[in-house]
């Protein structure tokens, strides 16, 4: 589904700053991949480059979603094609109601795919059901997007968006950061509920604990802009026990 080959990127404003340095990764439908790595290894940059944020220049390599060249698409086209990024730092948008935002987003994607827009009634029914599972109350839906939300509320709100948009390729960037145990459970239940044969996940995390809840099929260790080791879930446990030091030394970095 997602095929990244030898991806290189640097900062648009300063091409001396190279961030991704030859990253390759293939994710098939139904799989859950975890990317772990120390701060600054380029995990968030990878998620931004895939979702189309300005500020990065891809100098080499490719990223394809279902055979289509992601890097050629506008961010909204990538979203309509089924890519979703749960942001490490969800953005606050004063003046835009959370519910209005969700409805606009759902219908914009449907329109882009040539599907009929949801009526207000259909949308509300769907939203109520999904919000309830994530324990998001009516007040949070009425408030402006992410404004005044706690860290945990912001992350739950990201998962709500994901549940409403039903993307096929979900990237979660440090969705566990800032979550207490209960919130972590809610968020992972939300993610697990979405697991499906034709949907894949790329779970970026710094810590192993999220992976106790969202069980990955593959774990990749990222350092300095590339993947230095890949393996099964046991790799995450190794990080948990020994930190990144041994793995990095083993890879000769």
């Amino acid at each position: 589904m997602l095929e990244i080959k030898n991806l290189h990127c640097d900062l648009e404003e300063d091409s001396e700053v190279k961030i991704l340095k030859g990253l390759s990764l293939t994710v098939n439908p139904g799989e859950v991949h975890a990317i772990m790595g120390p701060n600054g290894s380029g995990k968030s940059t990878l998620s931004y480059v895939l979702s189309g944020r300005d500020g990065y220049e891809v100098t080499e390599g490719s990223a394809m979603l279902d055979g289509a060249d992601l890097l050629e698409m506008e961010p909204e086209e990538r979203a309509a094609a089924g890519l979703f990024l749960a942001f490490q730092y969800p953005v606050e948008i004063p003046g835009v109601g959370n519910m209005t935002f969700l409805r606009t987003a759902v219908n914009a994607q449907r329109k882009a795919r040539g599907e009929e827009e949801l009526s207000a009634g259909e949308f509300l029914k769907l939203l109520r059901a999904k919000a309830k599972e994530l324990q998001i109350d009516a007040d949070m839906l009425k408030r402006p997007v992410n404004v005044g939300f706690s860290g945990g509320e912001k992350k739950r709100n990201e998962i709500l968006q994901m549940a409403m948009l039903e993307p096929r390729m979900c990237i979660l960037d440090e969705t566990d950061s800032g979550l207490d145990v209960d919130a972590m459970k809610l968020v992972s239940d939300g993610v697990n509920a979405l697991r499906a044969k034709d949907r894949a996940f790329l779970v970026i995390t710094h810590y192993q604990r999220l992976l106790n809840h969202i069980k990955p099929d593959f774990v990749h260790i990222m350092h300095d802009g590339r993947i230095i080791k890949s393996g099964g879930p046991e790799l995450a446990l190794e990080v948990e026990e020994n930190g990144y030091g041994d793995l990095l030394a083993e890879a000769g970095v």
């Binding site: 979702s51 300005d54 909204e76 979203a79 953005v91 948008i93 987003a105 914009a108 882009a112 948009l165």
Partner: peptide, 14 residues
């Protein structure tokens, strides 16, 4: 720009 990107990443045309 970060608000604009957030909205676009959710599928809203620019």
């Amino acid at each position: 720009p970060s608000q604009l990107f957030y909205l676009r990443a959710r599928g809203l045309p620019e």
